[in-house]
Nucleic acid binder design. Structure first.
Ligand code: MN
Ligand code: MN
Ligand code: MN
Ligand code: MN
Lengths: 230, 230
DNA sequence: ATTAATCTTTAGATTTGTCTAAATTTTATT
DNA sequence: AATAAAATTTAGACAAATCTAAAGATTAAT
């Protein structure tokens, strides 16, 4: 069975919202997809009819096994293309999300496998997010949110929690990217801002909002398992 | 201005039919796009409104300068992706047309230029068709139709006149591809079939229909200028 | 120059995905 | 438990792209 671009975007968004914990609501999904709740309800019915979604009106919804399988296939394509764009075509990691948003809908299954092979089966995309294999399996990276990192403990940035241009612009300005090693020097309770030290740079401070989007892998011995983003 | 996938497919088809000489008709375009004449008329109005087409009802139509510019941009993307699929991802030259039919609609102009650069600015796609540069200019390869090739004169296959799976399957069976060197030994007037000799193979015969789809570059000194395909 | 055949366009319907506004259901608050 | 607020769904409309059937225009044949 094949799906429209719109159906695929809905499936992928539902998958991502489900990963971010809790229950997914019609309103959440509408705001994620920049559309209206009424449009979401229409699509929920369509996806239920195609057996991709468990859905009872007013009772909420969740991806079926088949829906999850489809979602992972799209996520796989999205992240493989992002990897290609950054590591082969030399795009910046902050420039590829929108393009991959289109490329993920190219239908040829052969293309995905040839691309995966060409790239030597990468395990993580340029934002630190794991790339599902052909069976939907992927490595779960042990990572901690910057907010939860203990003081003076060096850790390596392994993922960012959003792909918004605004966030990626800010990260570029502060010289923070996947692989950046940093430590938290101080936490300020007034505004929950953090004073951090990036290797080879003088210490500087970052806002709570920014800290919340950064996930890190402690350099010596992992701790918590964090959530992942796109 | 940006265009829908459907609009782009119409523009590209009109461009190709115009290249193949004569006037383009509503019926031609409908059969090329596997749709109905009534649908074509609807789209012609839309393209005229967007100033891509010169069109007067019942009087025929042709691409405007802007329409031609847009068409060449899509052709450029199509052929660059085909080149990538064959030369980087190791697809067969007979497997890439349908995939490129989707990839040609990815909108990022930056992507096209990075891809072109990555591939070192190829001048011809895997079917021997010239790749337009960013300004729409391309090399016009001097080529002769196999039908018009003089006897016992070796020539190199440089383009095929269609991308149909059926044709490409036949060519694979007969070990003919872009770059194949062959000569015509004999022409039979009864059915216009040709006895040809491919280098390193014993002579064999091919039908008129097949011969018409093959374009060649004579090995010593070019002659006629032939038409091109997708 | 009529008539016939062909080509092209219009009229009206359908599907997909979206919207606004109103109705319904659930949840939270008094 | 009644009421207010919030979330969700339905009803009805619309644009894009397509279709069938019928009408209109052009071209070819008598
Ligand atoms: Mn997408
Ligand atoms: Mn990513
Ligand atoms: Mn196409
Ligand atoms: Mn080609």
């Amino acid at each position: 069975m094949s799906f429209t671009e719109s159906e695929e975007n809905y499936i992928k968004s539902i998958y991502h919202l489900q990963q971010q914990g809790e229950v997914v609501s019609t309103n959440d999904l509408a705001s994620e997809l920049q559309t209206k709740p009424a449009s979401v309800t229409d699509m929920l019915k369509k996806l239920k009819a195609k057996k991709l979604l468990n859905y009872e009106r007013y009772k909420g919804f969740s991806l079926s096994d088949e829906g999850t399988r489809v979602a992972l296939g799209i996520v796989r394509k999205h992240r493989l293309w992002e990897y290609f764009l950054v590591h082969e075509l030399e795009f910046g990691w902050d420039e590829v999300h929108e393009i991959a948003e289109e490329l993920e809908h190219i239908s040829s299954p052969q293309l995905v496998e040839k691309l995966d092979n060409y790239l030597s089966h990468p395990k993580f995309d340029p934002h630190g997010d794991p790339i599902p294999d052909i069976n939907g399996r992927m490595e779960l990276r042990k990572q901690v949110n910057l907010i939860d990192l203990q003081l003076n403990c060096e850790a390596e940035v392994s993922a960012v929690g959003s792909q918004s241009t605004e966030l990626l612009e800010l990260l570029k300005h502060k010289n923070i990217g996947i692989g950046t090693v940093l430590a938290v020097l101080k936490k300020f309770t007034f505004d929950n801002s953090l004073e951090i030290k990036v290797r080879d740079f003088p210490p500087f401070s970052i806002s709570q909002q920014l800290a919340q989007t950064l996930f890190l892998k402690p350099l010596y011995g992992a701790t918590t398992v964090g959530s992942i983003s796109k």
